[in-house]
Structure formats: structure tokens, C-alpha cells
Design a binder for these strands. Structure first.
Lengths: 194, 194
DNA sequence: CCGCTAATCCTGACAGTGTAAAGATACGAG
DNA sequence: CTCGTATCTTTACACTGTCAGGATTAGCGG
């Protein structure tokens, strides 16, 4: 158990953790590769070997971000059984992720730094999208219904991540969730009349 | 008419134009103050006198961005008369702005670089928000209805700005607009029954 | 028209950034 | 045990934002 072993042993995941912490603290704008390396206790050029350049690091981080994003939706869905309730719950999970990790949310949806042509990242993103599609399907929804749920969930989440929903700040969490659920229900396909 | 007058004469607006062009070409991430200065044909330290630092420049640019954002909504509203149609049209204008100037849209809604505590910027942002509120008011809508319209319009616009709405890319503009109008109508307060 | 102040712009410097090249170290297969 | 190779460090370079100080000129009272 040397103080400073020349070989870290698990630098790749250590760098990803450090990058996420750095992103959470200093934000997407003030993100620094050298600072990430310092946080991981390693020289500033060490990340290059694992990720190539900063884009490679952020691409890997975004991939992990999409996995957590999907997990956040699924966690909320587990509390519901009816298809409509599950779709609404997924929207709440969408918001959860944006509130818990706003910078990761921005890295995934509003940044151009990751390489979205990367196979792993693309796959992770498609998985999240396909999951949303699968939620609308049992409701007999079409393309417009998928877009509706997605846009509403994303709109709420992105505004919340940017702290642009001051109207929500005065409410306690339960009331806030109930209000968002109401918004999401508006856009779901209505039960067929008759 | 000297070749290079020592005093530019109108450097402030020239820098703002250069900054906007730079933002459109290289994106929010690769934005460089020195490059903006070079584009305006001026030394790298010249902007400091007019804007202080890069945050000052981006704050001024964001302020102008909010004005154009509001104008984009109003331009679409002019084509409608009914209150409901006006609210829907505003949503289309929201999308117009995000598609025409995605990086400016991101500067305003997804960046932390501008100083949103700045009086001018704050006022410009509030004006846009207040305008949205004024659109929902004649519909008898409450707080939830404002949030609904805002979130739906913002969700569509932000996804479009990030080119995450591939389902829309195959459609011609008229069909796309008609689809978005349908999404926006979903969230507006329904006509009171009876 | 003169002269002075203040606004405007430039030059030079510094710390910090990402990345590439080359050297140091240690792991693991043979 | 040896040696190739993966891993990490050191060094260097161009670029960034910001600051200090100097150069230029516009504006204006006299």
C-alpha cells in the first residue's frame, strides 16, 4: 500500500468519478481536464492514455450519464402499475435526474463537447429514447404522443436545471410533484371517449 | 477615411456583432474573446474597456438575445387573432428562435456564463416571461397553465436546438409546424365545458 | 486655434488551459 | 529472469482571459 504507486490501478473509473465531481462543483463552463487529473492525484497528461482527449473523457461521462438518466426514470416507474401512471412517473424521474445532477443533464442534452457519434454514447442515448417510446406504446399513442410526453418532460426538467422555474420554489416537494404530474397528464393521449 | 483609425468609433456594437457571429460559428464551447476581438479588427484587450471581462460581453449579448427572443414570439403572434391561437403562435415563435439561433438560445437558457443578476439582463428575461404570462391570462389560465405552455414550448425548442428531434427532420416545415401546434394546444386550458 | 483631460485602444506580461512528444516505471507473458 | 508494453510523468508549445502600463485621439473649455 504505497503512498504513491506509479500505477494507479483503477485510474479510468477514478478519473470518471473525479470528472463528475468536478463537473458538479465547477459546472460545465469551468471544467478543466488538468483539475480533474489533480483531483485524481495524477499528472495532468495521465487522462490522455485512457480517454485520448477531453472529448473522450466527456463522451465516456455522458454515456454513464445516460445510463443513470434511464435508471432515474425506471426508479420512479417502479412505484406505478397503470401504463398511464408509469408514463407520468417516468416524467418525474426525468425531472429527478435534472435536479439531482443538473450539470450532467446539461452535458447530455445541451453540450456539444461529447462525441455523440460515438457508438457507446449513441447506444446509451437511444436506449433512453426507446424506453420513452415503450412507455407511450401501451397507451395507443403515435409519434405525436411520444413527442408530447418527451417535450413536456424535457421542458420542465431543463427549466428546472436552469433554475428558471421560480414558481416552483415556494412549493414543497409533494405539491410540486403533483403539479408536474398534472402537466404530464395533459399531454398523454386521452382515454378513448365512449 | 484612414485605413486603421485608432478609435473604432462604434466598437461596442461591432464587438457584439462579432461575438454573435463567433458564437454561431464556433459554438458556446469554443467561444474565444480574443477571436472576437480579432474578428472586429481590434486588439485582444480592447473589449475589456467596453465590457470589463468576457462575462460582461456575454451578459450584454444575452440581453440582446432576450429581446430578439421576445420579438420572435411577437412576430408569430401577429398572424393570429384568437387568444388561443396567439398563445400557440408564440410557442412557434419560441421554436423559430431556437432553430434560427441555437447558440444564442443556449446562451440565454442553458449557460451560466452571463451574469443573470445584471439589471438589464434580468429585466429583459422578465419581459419575455411576463409576455408569456400575458398570453395565458385571457384564457382564464392559472399558474399551472402558464407552466404548461412554457414547459411545452421550451421542451420542443430545446430539443430542436440540440437536434434531438430527429422525428421532425423528415417532415416539411408546414407539417412540422402543424404538429407542434397540436402539442401546444394540448397543454392550454380547455374551453370550459357547457 | 490652443491645450488639457479623459476616453479609447494597444503592447507586454502572467497564470492557466489542452495536447503532443519523449522519457520513466512497473506489470506480465514467455 | 527478461523483455515488450501498458501506464504514468515530464517537458514543451500554442492558445486562452485578465491585468498593468503606455500610446493615441476625441472632446471641450479657454
Amino acid at each position: 500500500m504505497a503512498e504513491k504507486p506509479y500505477h494507479h490501478g483503477d485510474l479510468r473509473v477514478a478519473l470518471l468519478q473525479a470528472a463528475e465531481a468536478e463537473l458538479a462543483e465547477r459546472g460545465m463552463e469551468g471544467f478543466s481536464l488538468r483539475s480533474v487529473a489533480k483531483r485524481a492525484g495524477v499528472s495532468h497528461a495521465a487522462p490522455a492514455h485512457h480517454f485520448g482527449d477531453v472529448q473522450g473523457l466527456l463522451t465516456a461521462l455522458a454515456t454513464e450519464g445516460f445510463h443513470r438518466f434511464l435508471a432515474a426514470m425506471q426508479a420512479r416507474e417502479a412505484t406505478a402499475v397503470e401504463p398511464r401512471d408509469r408514463a407520468v412517473a417516468a416524467g418525474i424521474g426525468y425531472l429527478d435526474f435534472a435536479l439531482d445532477r443538473p450539470t450532467l443533464f446539461r452535458l447530455i442534452f445541451s453540450s456539444k463537447k461529447p462525441d455523440f457519434g460515438n457508438a457507446d454514447l449513441s447506444e446509451a442515448g437511444n436506449a433512453a429514447f426507446d424506453h420513452l417510446v415503450g412507455l407511450v406504446e401501451p397507451l395507443g399513442g403515435g409519434l405525436a404522443d411520444i413527442a408530447a410526453l418527451w417535450a413536456m418532460a424535457h421542458g420542465v426538467a431543463d427549466l428546472a436545471a436552469g433554475q428558471r422555474l421560480r414558481m416552483m420554489e415556494g412549493m414543497d416537494e409533494a405539491a410540486r410533484i403533483e403539479m408536474i404530474k398534472g402537466l404530464l397528464r395533459r399531454v398523454l393521449p386521452q382515454r378513448q371517449p365512449r
